[in-house]
């Protein structure tokens, strides 16, 4: 049965989120959020801490079940899929977690090759070759046999990024890719994200509150505020936005409508 709204997905749209609501107890995090992501673009969702940016991407990849609303991936509604069907959808995704979320009982190569080991019949040697190639893409060499605890923060993020791209996903999700890194390492990660988009032609959603990163990696920027996307536009459009909330956030002012609680 075609659901309402499915007809008007444009062929360019890879991900469409409609009227998404999610609450945790009395905390209504997402309140009717709408977002469309086009094939091959990098969209950056900005917003303050605790505004539900992580909740949004966790709903998209099916880690959280929304209370209401629909999510379409490639024209397919995945919102209420069961675990088995979700797992098929998840193979299209790669996700970079905020703190890397590397499996700390496994060395780097097993981390990066995890998806390949689980979902393909490749032999360990073949996996190791692919792992080395993916690690090279994120600028790492000779770390295959280190444990995650032996890596620095920036290296962890890069290994995690290598793990996210190991299965050659169509969609990459970045949860605060530059948070907690020094400015130089943050820029390295930004460059990597841009390179990956060009090399792998992936569509990606990044959530961040690092404006420098948002301007650099975003084809479009969407501002999340009070559970809704209040403005979407190219970095230039966002910079010149007339919306006071957007202006306060991107300029990082302590005075403004956000802090006044409007």
């Amino acid at each position: 049965m075609p659901k309402e709204g499915q007809q008007d997905i444009k062929p360019d749209t890879l991900i469409m989120v409609r009227d998404l609501c999610k609450s945790f107890g009395s905390n209504h995090v997402l309140q009717g959020l709408n977002l469309e992501v086009n094939r091959g673009e990098d969209i950056v969702v900005i917003g303050g801490s605790g505004t539900g940016k992580s909740v949004l991407i966790k709903c998209i990849i099916g880690l959280l079940k929304p209370d209401r609303g629909t999510i379409y991936i490639d024209g397919e509604e995945i919102t209420y899929y069961n675990e088995a069907k979700l797992n098929e959808i998840r193979k299209k995704f790669g996700m970079l977690f905020q703190f890397g979320a590397l499996f700390d009982s496994m060395p780097v190569w097993e981390n990066v090759g995890f998806g390949l080991k689980q979902h393909t019949n490749l032999k360990d040697d073949e996996i190791r070759d692919i792992v080395a190639e993916k690690l090279a893409m994120v600028g790492l060499k000779g770390v295959e046999y280190l444990m995650p605890s032996e890596l620095s923060g920036g290296m962890k993020k890069r290994v995690s990024l290598a793990r996210a791209i190991a299965m050659e996903p169509e969609i990459l999700l970045y949860d605060e890719p530059t948070t907690g890194l020094d400015p130089i390492m943050a820029d390295v990660i930004n460059e990597l994200i841009i390179q990956l988009r060009e090399k792998l032609r992936v569509t990606s959603i990044a959530i961040t509150h690092d404006m420098k990163s948002a301007y650099k990696i975003g084809d479009r920027i969407a501002m999340l505020y009070k559970g809704k996307i209040i403005e979407v536009g190219t970095p230039d459009e966002i910079k010149n936005s007339k919306n006071e909330i957007v202006q306060q956030f991107i300029q990082g002012k302590s005075e403004g409508p956000i802090t006044r609680g409007e």
Binding site: R90, M95, Q98, A101, L102
Partner: peptide, 21 residues
């Protein structure tokens, strides 16, 4: 302790994200 640490450091989410139950 091990699974709890994996839970709070999002390693369990990472398993889901890698399509592994």
């Amino acid at each position: 302790a091990e699974l709890g640490t994996m839970q709070v450091t999002e390693q369990i989410d990472a398993l889901y994200a890698l399509a592994t139950n």
